[in-house]
Amino acid sequence: MGEVTLTIDNKEVKAEEGMTVLEAARSAGIKIPTLCHHEKLEPYTACRICMVEVESRGRSELDTSCSRPVKDNMVVRTQSEELTEIRRTLLELMLSHAPDARELQELVEEYGANRNRFAKEPSFCIHCGLCVRYCAEVKKKNAVVFVKSGVRREISFNKEIASRECWKCRECFELCPTEALQTAYLLTEALTSDSSSFELEPDA
């Protein structure tokens, strides 16, 4: 694979062909915020917080850096007034769902997001899909999936698969930027606890 040179925030960055802008930026120590990104998973572009400005043919366009492949002579900006505005609004929307989400707090400070801009509709999930994708792509179990659609979309553990697979894994818990995943899991546990297939928690 060939090597390409691009400019990120006025800094010359060398990257391998096939890398994404996000990977190139991180390799050069340039920080781009992400919420739904995970090294082991395919780009998902759900949270859109990694949005950057890409200059091409004299125009600047917005794109998610986690999915945008690098190109030779590419010019990227990771900070601008417009990007701050976009990220702030995204954060404010996510805060209406998950006001206390751990990973949002730092970004809220950084981008000056207003916690009360949108009415609270706490579902405690920001639909990053990390748990769903990790379970499908890495573990290949599909124990947790998205169900329903649009504003009603939510994560749901499949009882049968979860009771077989989840106790010994639970690797998705630490990926969750909010507490929603654990809550959903505990709910499933409660629903299945009377079935004999469910063992008692080892350290309980």
Binding site: K141, N142, V147, S149, S156, N158, I161
Partner: peptide, 14 residues
């Protein structure tokens, strides 16, 4: 197909 995937599809469409 995993049952969860079938449920995902069955709940997605109106």
């Amino acid at each position: 197909l995993p049952l969860s995937k079938v449920q995902q599809t069955a709940t997605f469409y109106k």
